Amino acid sequence: MRARRCIDVRQPLSQLLEAPSDRGQATQLPLDRHDLAARTLYVEWPQVVAATAAQLRHVAARHPDDRELAALIKELTAGSTDFRTHWVTGEVALRTSGTKSLRHPEAGVLTFTDENFEAPGDARQRLVAFTPGKDSPTEAALRLLRGGQ
């Protein structure tokens, strides 16, 4: 089940987006961490939870016999009041792009556009690309975090 939640290919710059104590950890669904750190990281926390629940409902509809997915949903509904609240609405959505803002402990709020790409032939694997706006405050902050390069 953990393989569904983790990205195992990391770019060095992506590690700079994390708190120093989290660097080197696998990236997981935001709801894997039912704690203040996850709520603090995502500026739009309620929207992140709602989108995650709606997307998981979409995946569950496509794969109704997937026991690992059912176990993940059960775990999230049991462990997260926020997720449970959005799950019971029954909303279904496939998110392909959007904007996310993250609170970085040193750089402040960083805003990215995100694009979601499904792997050809395996809709269960996705690549999510975060891109700062050209000449944006986020791009400048990332340059500073990277050491001015």
Rank of each mutant, 00 (worst) to 15 (best):
A3V: 13
R4H: 10
C6S: 09
C6K: 03
I7Y: 04
I7A: 13
D8W: 13
V9F: 12
V9L: 13
R10D: 12
P12A: 15
Q15E: 15
Q15G: 11
Q15H: 03
L16W: 07
L17D: 11
E18T: 02
A19M: 04
S21K: 06
S21I: 01
R23H: 08
G24N: 12
G24E: 10
G24I: 04
T27Q: 06
P30C: 12
L31N: 13
L31C: 14
L31K: 08
D32G: 10
A38V: 05
E44W: 05
W45D: 12
W45S: 08
P46G: 12
V48D: 06
V49R: 08
A53W: 09
A53G: 04
A53R: 00
A53E: 09
A53N: 02
Q55G: 12
Q55E: 15
R57E: 10
H58I: 01
V59W: 11
R62K: 12
H63A: 12
D65I: 00
D66Y: 10
D66F: 10
D66V: 11
E68C: 06
A71E: 14
A71P: 00
K74M: 05
E75A: 14
G79D: 05
S80V: 00
T81E: 15
F83S: 15
R84G: 06
W87L: 10
W87Y: 02
V88S: 09
V88D: 08
E91A: 15
V92P: 13
A93Q: 05
A93T: 00
L94S: 12
R95A: 14
T96L: 15
S101L: 03
L102C: 09
E106W: 01
G108Y: 11
V109E: 14
T111Q: 13
F112K: 05
T113Q: 10
T113M: 04
T113H: 11
E115C: 03
E115A: 04
F117M: 13
A123D: 11
A123H: 02
Q125G: 09
R126V: 03
V128I: 10
V128P: 02
A129Q: 03
F130E: 09
G133P: 00
G133Q: 13
K134F: 11
K134Y: 10
D135F: 04
T138C: 08
A140S: 15
A140R: 15
A141T: 00
L142C: 05
L144R: 15
L145I: 00
L145M: 03
L145T: 00
G148S: 05
G148Q: 09
